[in-house]
């Protein structure tokens, strides 16, 4: 069971309160008509699928219902830190994680 800290509610809660929403920091191309098929494939389908610290989106569906971002180690499943949606991507050092 994951313990996830909602940055808005400022509480650490069990994973059942949250819905996973895929990899974070994936920006939709501003003009889809202008991108190549390769770039469009990368945007739609290709994911980093990191083995280690993974930047991902979660939604506090059974709480404030807002989206936020989390960094989670996909080997240990430990949530290393969470931050508000729209905030810049923090480094592991920013989150106080020793590499």
């Amino acid at each position: 069971m994951l313990l996830i800290h909602c940055p808005y509610c400022d509480e650490s809660l069990p994973e059942m309160e949250f819905a996973y929403a895929g990899e974070a920091h994936i920006a939709r191309p501003v003009d889809p008509n202008a991108v190549s098929d390769d770039e469009w494939r990368d945007h739609l389908f290709v994911r980093s699928n990191v083995r280690g610290p993974h930047y991902e989106r979660w939604r506090h569906v059974h709480g404030c219902a807002r989206f936020f971002n989390a960094v989670r180690d996909t080997v240990s499943d430990r949530v290393l830190g969470t931050y508000a949606a729209g905030a810049p991507r923090p480094s592991l050092a920013d989150l106080g994680v020793e590499e």
Binding site: M1, L2, P14, E15, M16, A19, Y20, N49, R51, H54, E56, R72, T74, V75, S76, D77
Partner: peptide
């Protein structure tokens, strides 16, 4: 499970 992972475990919910 709903989240990606290499843990070969998964959660109890």
């Amino acid at each position: 499970d709903q989240y990606t992972s290499y843990s070969q475990r998964g959660g109890l919910p």
